[in-house]
Design a protein around this nucleic acid. Sequence first.
DNA 1: CACCAGGCAAGTA
DNA 2: TACTTGCATGGT
Length: 215
Amino acid sequence: MPTQAERLNTLYQKLLAHFGPQGWWPGESAFEVVVGTILTQNTNWNNVEKAIANLKGAGLLDLPALLDLPQALFAEYIRPAGYYNIKASRLYNLLALINGQYKGNLDALFSLPLPELRQQLLTVKGIGPETADSIILYAAGKPIFVVDAYTHRILLRHDLIDEECDYHALQELFMDCFPPDTDMYGEFHALLVQTGKQFCKKTNPRCDSCPLKNL
DNA sequence: CACCAGGCAAGTA
DNA sequence: TACTTGCATGGT
């Protein structure tokens, strides 16, 4: 019988062989990644891309520009991403922290040791565990495993976890099984999302053609 | 048409 | 503490 760690490793190898490297997070700058993590909360990435294109087209995808832009106006640019008012509020909460505590320097915030960075991000209203971890992993480039709804669903359907396994337990599972590696963690999470989108939706799971069929 | 999407916070009992 | 609801656009 393979251990849980061996099964997880097999899962990763199968997904990597099937999909290839994903190269996440899509974005040209750390700041763009930060904006994207908030815009994609419970939202299809296709919608996020429209919002990012709006910002990019207006030259607003950088921190100094947004600090001069009223939040209500920012909300209009990101309308296609949905939840635009609350997302504008959430991003501006983070901008206020960066501006107030870190002299408007994103790298100063990212220079904190990982545990302190995570704690700092979680103090921002609108940034929960997944968003904080996505920022840490994909924008700051520090090794922490990002868990999302697909991660839970995929592992549950393959009997690797129980239904009640929460965010922290799931994150610990991965980080106990794999040594800290920013690139590997980033690929793994991206592969899980890709798998979820194609083969592990809430309804109508088509596990017949899923690369994890005989896991 | 109904359902879903790379969450999170606030409200209710 | 343990559920439930609001937030909103766009694709399938």
